[in-house]
């Protein structure tokens, strides 16, 4: 489903990723760990083409990212639900509007959007905050909105970059439990985080450990 062949990425002269080769199958739960600057975020950004200049090949569902046309890029990105490290919520739009944006961009009907958004708001416990603006919410609430936005389009892959980074342990646990629920439905999940301890206690899946842009270990977390 996701295949990386010798993927390298440089920022100026500095190598952020070096010869990364990976095979990720549908429905896997992947935890990408490593210290800050290990290349975790860069790896995720390459997958959703926020970083589009890299060496090597990346295939997602048979689509070669090096050859993808700009018109196909939105279609590719709709396969992903992305949880950003800094939430990336639009401050001038309400919680409801932020989540609805994904479905509006996909051209869904208003009635469907309303039903679907309210559904994810209920499941994340944010139903009462639908009309609130992101900056009036706590960090944990903002992250829950970000997660709700990531799952509302029912993507086949969820990419989460430090989804628990700035949260207390209770909020972090709630976010992970929510992602675990989606994993049970067959969604592939890739989480990049430095918090190996929390992940090991919560997740069953594959851990890929990066350091200085290289894979130094791959193990299964039980």
């Amino acid at each position: 489903m996701i295949r990386l062949f010798n993927v390298s990425k440089r920022f100026g002269g500095k190598l952020a990723l070096k010869n990364i080769s990976l095979d990720i199958e549908q429905g896997e739960f992947i935890f990408i760990s490593g210290p800050s600057g290990a290349g975790k975020s860069t790896l995720l950004k390459i997958l959703y083409l926020a970083e589009n200049i890299f060496e090597g090949q990346v295939l997602i569902d048979g689509m070669n990212l090096s050859r993808i046309s700009s018109s196909k890029l939105p279609v590719l990105r709709r396969r992903f639900g992305i949880v950003f490290q800094d939430f990336k919520l639009i401050p001038t739009r309400t919680v409801y509007e932020n989540i609805a944006l994904v479905l509006e961009a996909a051209g869904k009907k208003t009635s469907f959007i309303k039903k679907k958004v309210m559904q994810v708001l209920r499941s994340t416990g944010m139903e009462k905050k639908a009309k609130a603006f992101p900056l009036t919410l706590s960090g944990g609430e903002q992250q829950r909105v970000a997660v709700a936005r990531a799952v509302v389009g029912e993507p086949s892959i969820i990419l989460a970059d430090e989804p628990t980074g700035s949260l207390d342990s209770t909020s972090a646990r709630a976010i992970l439990d929510f992602l675990i629920e989606y994993h049970k439905k067959g969604t592939t999940i890739l989480i990049a985080s430095h918090d190996l301890h929390l992940m090991k206690n919560t997740i069953q899946g594959k851990n890929i450990e990066l350091n200085a842009g290289r894979i130094i270990r791959t193990d299964i977390m039980l």
């Binding site: 950003f84 944006l101 936005r149």
Partner: peptide
């Protein structure tokens, strides 16, 4: 800009 960047990342087309 932030709004546009987010729109792009969630799969919005240029027309949208």
């Amino acid at each position: 800009m932030l709004e546009v960047e987010i729109m792009r990342l969630v799969g919005a087309t240029e027309t949208f």
